[in-house]
Design a protein around this nucleic acid. Structure first.
Lengths: 199, 199
DNA sequence: TTAAAAAATTTAACACTGTTAAGTAAATGA
DNA sequence: TCATTTACTTAACAGTGTTAAATTTTTTAA
């Protein structure tokens, strides 16, 4: 029965269409815009049909997450293949990682739990700059007697902030390391940047 | 009319109770568990009453966010006050930042857009370790001829990952820096860590 | 004290969400 | 052609944020 095969192929296609439709909706309106009924609209079915292909909404997110990791891995391999020296490879891979995050912004968000909605919220809130200012001032003082430009301090500040916020995020989203490991990474990173300032 | 004052005081108290109730619910069941009706239950009113105090749910989140920034700033100041040398102050402040993130996990999440729901999702997905493994291998190779232990590579890997994921998150949630600044931070951080490996 | 006005609070409703069960239409097999 | 399976839709439930109307309570004025 070749018709069985045809039907199986159609089913696989619909499974794929659901993922494509989901990603399309998310790219147009963000993760909040994604709903089962909108997906159904997009693939020209009604909502309950989707449950024939994915057990629930979470399973769709999970599948998109998986696709994201595979795509990222592929791009890391390509970046690596362009160089011979490990140092160059490593640099190229992290730059590829960076590019992936913004080229596939929505995938990166679901892969690593980067919130999307609170974007415009934290802005326009003066209190949000309080912690920044406090640390900023100490960095300026640490660089004395050299009078640092805005850009110089900015780079130092964001390097500090990135490594610490990154480590926090990673640990919060998929609690990764042991406490000792975290503390070691933290202290090494902090003292490293401080040394790069004091020379 | 002193009764006016009393009423105003009661109103202010209810405003505060709403925030307290919200945070309690979130601490018990995560951000997904927070709903207007549950808040109303907690303060022993019905849902529409809340709109007399906050224009919508977002305004409540915003107020909690503000409280978070104020509390963080306070703790940073306290950390700073414990030291004289700017280098020691800076270290203490970042460690205080770290402590705040986990002591006030829910506040940190809403302040900086750290997703909460996808926690158990990315786990148990083998593909999620693909990018990690790829980069891990190159780090091992870069450290040759020294044969690195698991822990040594782990620290290097997470330092890389933290600074880059952190910078990505910061830019995604409240798009901060210019492209040039980001690239500069990125390249400096990457080459810095690579140098710390190759010596 | 009582009637009227104002404030406080609740009930009901709307449009949406994910999800399930029941019903209907279409395709398939004998 | 008839029966059975498959495909699909409609209807419903419990939940969400939010608004308007109805109701109760409190305050004010006569």
């Amino acid at each position: 029965m070749a018709s069985k095969d045809r039907i199986l192929r159609l089913k696989e296609e619909t499974r794929c269409n659901i993922l494509d439709a989901s990603l399309k909706i998310v790219k147009e309106g963000g993760w909040d815009a994604l709903s089962m009924r909108k997906i159904a609209d997009e693939i020209e079915y009604t909502a309950p049909i989707i449950y024939e292909y994915y057990s629930n909404k979470g399973a769709i997110l999970l599948e998109l997450t998986r696709k994201g990791f595979l795509l990222l891995a592929k791009q890391l391999e390509e970046a690596k293949a362009k160089h011979r020296l490990p140092a160059k490879q490593l640099e190229a891979m992290w730059l590829a990682y960076w590019d992936f995050a913004f080229a596939e912004r929505e995938l990166y968000q679901v892969m690593y739990g980067v919130e999307t909605s609170c974007c415009e919220m934290a802005k326009k809130m003066p209190e949000s700059e309080l912690p920044t200012d406090l640390i900023w001032d100490v960095i300026v003082e640490l660089m004395l007697p050299h009078v640092a430009t805005e850009d110089e301090v900015c780079i130092k500040y964001y390097t500090f902030w990135s490594v610490i916020h990154g480590l926090i995020s990673i640990n919060m989203v998929n609690r990764g390391n042991s406490d000792e490991t975290n503390q070691e990474i933290l202290k090494l990173a902090i003292s490293g940047i401080i040394k790069s300032i004091t020379g």
